[in-house]
Amino acid sequence: MQKPTRTMLFSDKAPKPVGAYPHARQVGNLLFLSGVGPRKRDAKDIPGVTLDEDGKILQYDIETQCHAVFENVRLILEASGARWDNLVDVTVFLTNMKDDFLTFNRIYAEYFKENQPCRTTVEVNALPTPIAIELKCIAVIGSGH
């Protein structure tokens, strides 16, 4: 049995990973995206986030963060030779499900009118950077998809 090809992929437009991992990894015809947040490449400020001098969140705008996350996912997909319609599974991490889920769900529906991948949404206590949302995505790429 032949081993599937494993390729690590990076986007020169998406925010740099905050650790030792690629933006995405292709295994066969599956593309696995590492967790994607709203940060912008080479920018100190995070869209929709106001921090105090200690780096703690003073306030955030979940709508702005959602749009920034979806844009970053698109940038990584495109750099990997995939499209939005190739997404088949999305895991959503929110730090405040009670206050943010309805807004997130409304914005999500705007981006997924045609393609509707499987989705799981969970609340987490914190994310590695001072953000309120992160996505983990899987896409199918290659011939016929």
Rank of each mutant, 00 (worst) to 15 (best):
V92R: 02
R106K: 13
T91Q: 15
D89W: 09
A43M: 12
F32H: 13
L94G: 03
G48W: 05
H23W: 11
G48H: 05
R25A: 13
I46L: 05
V88S: 08
D99N: 12
T5Y: 12
G55R: 02
S34Y: 04
D100S: 03
G142L: 03
F112S: 04
L75Y: 10
N105L: 01
H67F: 09
A79T: 13
N115W: 00
V88Y: 08
A68T: 11
F32N: 05
V18K: 12
D54E: 15
T120E: 15
G48E: 11
R119L: 09
L51C: 07
M8K: 14
N125L: 05
L127W: 12
I62F: 06
N72R: 01
P17D: 02
D61Y: 03
E123N: 01
A20G: 00
P117F: 00
S80H: 09
A24E: 12
K3V: 13
Q2R: 15
C137Y: 05
T120N: 12
T103F: 00
T64F: 04
N125M: 12
N115I: 07
L9C: 09
T129L: 10
E63C: 03
M1D: 14
C66M: 10
Q65P: 14
Y60E: 11
L77T: 10
N29P: 00
V140G: 03
F93R: 11
K40N: 13
A43V: 10
Q116H: 09
R83G: 12
V140L: 09
V90C: 05
A68D: 12
S80R: 08
N115T: 14
H23Y: 04
T7D: 10
A68F: 07
Y108E: 04
I107L: 09
I46K: 01
P15S: 07
P128N: 06
D89F: 09
H67R: 11
N125G: 11
T95D: 10
I57Y: 05
R25C: 12
P47Y: 03
M97I: 07
V27N: 10
N125F: 06
N105V: 00
T95A: 00
R83Q: 15
R25G: 08
Q65F: 00
G48R: 02
D42F: 01
V88W: 06
L135K: 05
F93P: 02
C137H: 04
K44W: 15
D89M: 07
N86E: 13
A68K: 03
M8T: 14
R41N: 13
E71T: 08
T91V: 10
A43K: 13
F93W: 07
N125V: 08
D61I: 02
F10M: 15
E71Y: 02
L75G: 04
L9Q: 14
P4L: 02
L9F: 10
R119E: 12
T121A: 07
Y21P: 00
L58A: 09
A20P: 00
Y60N: 07
Y108A: 02
P17Q: 00
L30F: 15
L30T: 14
F32T: 07
P38G: 06
I133G: 01
D52H: 01
I62P: 04
V73G: 06
